[in-house]
């Protein structure tokens, strides 16, 4: 019976402590009411629903949780945190799990990470996001050239896709760039993948 989870063997107490320390949340306060799952607008794209991620984290099932697709499809809308009857910041736990997965090179949905890089690259350059730049970078990185291209005409018509980036004036863009630089230095120092 290989599909039975041996909780004693798979339970990673260190992982539980790590999640709690990084997120500032106490996992044992979750009583599995499922309110997070009930309100999650991205749940349709999850492999495991939020309450199952929470249960996995509670039990210390590290690989199950970190390899899940769900933590990458999370929108960070914080509906789960708002509705949790036990005041758990569930979105913060999802965020923590994403960080942990990246540190351990266990990112299961690479294209989400690629999208973020594309988005952040434009912010680093101009101090604000630049949609068309994000689009182009993402297409290059993911080789998904025609993804969502059908939305472009409508977005262009509504002037949501400016061809020129908006650069934050008065040295603002440079200041934002320096924040990225500082983060990168810290990431190198601490051995975190940027």
């Amino acid at each position: 019976m290989s599909n039975i989870t041996d909780i004693r063997l798979k339970r990673d107490a260190g992982f539980i402590a790590e999640v709690e320390a990084a997120s500032g949340q106490k996992l044992s306060t979750c009583y599995q009411c499922g309110n997070c799952t009930a309100g999650c607008p991205a749940g349709f794209a999850y492999d495991k629903q939020v309450n199952r991620i929470m249960r996995g984290a509670q039990l210390g099932l590290k690989d199950d949780v970190l390899n899940s697709r769900a933590i990458w499809m999370c929108l960070s809308c914080f509906t789960c945190s708002l509705r949790c009857p036990n005041n758990i910041d569930v979105a913060a736990i999802m965020e923590t799990l994403r960080h942990m997965a990246r540190k351990k090179n266990m990112v299961s949905v690479r294209k989400v990470e690629k999208f973020w890089f594309s988005f952040l690259n434009t912010v680093r350059a101009f101090g604000r996001s630049w949609e068309i730049g994000t689009m182009a970078l993402y297409m290059l990185r993911s080789l998904r050239v025609f993804t969502d291209i059908d939305l472009a005409p409508e977005a262009l018509k509504k002037q949501k896709l400016p061809f020129k980036p908006y650069v934050v004036p008065n040295g603002g863009a440079g200041a934002v760039g320096r924040i990225f630089k500082r983060y990168r230095e810290r990431a190198d120092r601490e051995g975190v993948r940027p």
Partner: peptide
């Protein structure tokens, strides 16, 4: 908008 935690799905 609820969830069925035994099913593991929103309902």
């Amino acid at each position: 908008m609820g969830s069925d935690t035994l099913l593991g799905e929103p309902v």
